[in-house]
Design a binder for these strands. Structure first.
Length: 278
DNA sequence: CTCACATGTTAAG
DNA sequence: TTAACCTGTGAGC
């Protein structure tokens, strides 16, 4: 679940459910107990995301810093009378008047000061989901790097919030091979990637899914049988290795890029040849 | 039942 | 480069 859109969606829901009221903060599992005790009953100011980092602000410039990692989940539920007992390992539980939230499996849940938060935000790349996201900051890194664009897009210090699904899908939509070196891109190509990412991820925040297939390429439009991706969204290449490309029919390729599987279509995303003549 | 793997990151070797 | 961490799910026996 957790690429940047998931965290922004959570920030929005947390703010709507808890902001401006006092919240009960506990750690049924125990690993956040000490911090929870310091926050319990205080006013929750709001929640905000930067890339994959989530910050829940409590009165007094205190921030619960959450990173879901690969498998973490933060689930919001409504309750009527009593809050049900925790199921499984609940690292953090927030309880408001009619809503509670349970955090499980996160790779980070810590109590931070404002300056700790600021330091992490300063080290992160621009976030396409934020109003203040500045693509020029990412471009400064990309244009100087010989690393593949597929690696740069997932480097959170270059660009914040993009994960393995958006990487694969963005590059497919751009017709760009994941191994193309960053310093071979033209500025307009980077701008086009950013301009595609903003509405794509914004839609992800709205729906809670990653859908990247253009209307003209849906199975229906292409006269093929409808299909369902097991990860909730309609995508071109992510985890579709060995299956036919939705556009050209060639088998989708897979290769590990920096310990993460990278997926692409070798016909729609041809290998880049630098300034090849002829 | 066990095992591999997952939309992520960090630290050890 | 590899292992570790945290949890859930689906495939296979």
């Amino acid at each position: 679940m957790p690429e940047g859109h998931t965290l922004h969606r959570l920030a929005r829901h947390l703010t709507a459910a808890f902001a401006g009221r006092s919240v009960s903060v506990t750690s049924p599992q125990g690993r956040f107990s000490e911090s929870a005790a310091q926050l319990d009953g205080d006013v929750l100011v709001g929640a905000e995301a930067w890339g994959k980092q989530l910050f829940v602000e409590l009165a007094g410039d205190r921030f619960i810093h959450i990173h879901l990692g690969l498998i973490g989940k933060l689930d919001l539920h409504t309750y009527v009378d009593q809050v049900p007992p925790p199921v499984g390992q609940v690292r953090l539980r927030l309880v408001g008047e009619s809503v509670y939230a349970d955090l499980r499996g996160a790779s980070a849940c810590d109590l931070w000061t404002a300056s700790q938060r600021d330091a992490v935000v300063a080290a992160a790349g621009p976030d396409p989901l934020r109003e203040d996201g500045d693509p020029g900051r990412a471009w400064d890194r990309i244009r100087r790097s010989r690393l593949p664009i597929g690696a740069l897009l997932m480097d959170q210090s270059v660009l914040a919030g993009v994960g393995n699904v958006y990487r694969a899908e963005l590059l497919f939509r751009a017709g760009m091979h994941p191994l193309r070196p960053g310093n071979t891109l033209r500025s307009g190509q980077w701008q086009a990637l950013w301009d595609d990412l903003v509405p794509l991820m914004t839609e992800g925040v709205r729906t809670g899914r990653i859908d990247t297939v253009r209307p003209e390429h849906t199975p229906e439009a292409m006269g093929r049988a409808p299909r369902v991706d097991d990860h909730g969204g309609e995508v071109y290449v992510y985890r579709r290795h060995g299956q036919p490309c939705l556009v050209c029919g060639r088998r989708v390729s897979i290769e590990a890029l920096r310990a993460r599987n990278s997926y692409w279509c070798s016909r729609c995303q041809p290998v880049f040849r630098s300034r090849a003549v002829g």
